[in-house]
Amino acid sequence: MHQNPDSDEIRDILSTSRTVAVVGLSDRPYRTSHAIARALQAFGFEIFPVNPHLSGPVLGETPFSKVQEIPERVDIVDVFRRSEEVMPVARDAVAAGARVLWMQSGIVNEEAAAYARQQGLTVVMDRCIKVDYASLVGR
């Protein structure tokens, strides 16, 4: 069973990361993914929308269909997909060379977590990146 990194390690991840691929980012401002991505931008992260259904920029950023299409290495792949849809995202994150697979609050996929860990990624599951940043880093 997956165990998240402790608070010190999560603080370190969030303090040293600069780029976040937001998988499942919506262009609708009332959606949670949109609000959290906007907050990540305000915290100073460069975000990359990842959603094959987006046709234009979101939060001023060009969207991509997959993490692997992003022209630079991303630190964190932040997942806003149903739990049962995370495994392809984990494979994409590994193939793209990401450092961290982060599944948002309510998203739990043990198989994807185990796969990503076996491939060398740090995995955070069922936690909100915005809340963790605000409480652990808060600058």
Rank of each mutant, 00 (worst) to 15 (best):
I47Q: 02
I36R: 00
A21D: 01
M1Q: 12
R99V: 04
L101T: 07
R11H: 07
E69C: 13
Q104K: 04
Y133R: 01
V123Q: 01
G44E: 03
R127N: 03
I70H: 10
A93D: 07
E72I: 15
K66P: 05
G97Q: 11
L25V: 07
G97H: 13
R127Y: 06
W102D: 03
K66D: 09
P71T: 07
I47G: 00
P88V: 11
S55T: 14
T122D: 01
A134L: 12
I13D: 03
R99W: 04
I107H: 02
E111V: 13
V94R: 07
P52K: 09
S65F: 06
V58M: 08
S7Y: 03
A116M: 06
P49M: 13
A39Q: 08
R31V: 02
V137I: 07
G24D: 02
F80C: 06
K66I: 01
L101E: 05
K66C: 11
L54A: 06
Q119W: 05
H53T: 15
S83R: 05
A114G: 08
R117P: 02
V137E: 06
P71M: 12
H34R: 00
V124H: 05
T122N: 03
S17I: 04
A96M: 12
I10C: 03
A113H: 04
S17D: 02
A42R: 14
Q3D: 13
R28E: 11
R82V: 08
Q104G: 04
P63V: 12
H34T: 00
S65H: 12
R38V: 04
A95S: 15
F48A: 10
R91S: 13
Q118T: 14
D75K: 07
R31E: 11
Q118C: 09
A39M: 11
V22D: 01
P63N: 10
Q68A: 15
V123H: 03
I107Y: 01
Q104I: 03
Y133W: 14
E84F: 15
Q3L: 14
A116L: 03
I70M: 14
F80L: 06
L101Y: 08
I10Q: 05
R127A: 05
R38S: 13
N109L: 10
L54I: 10
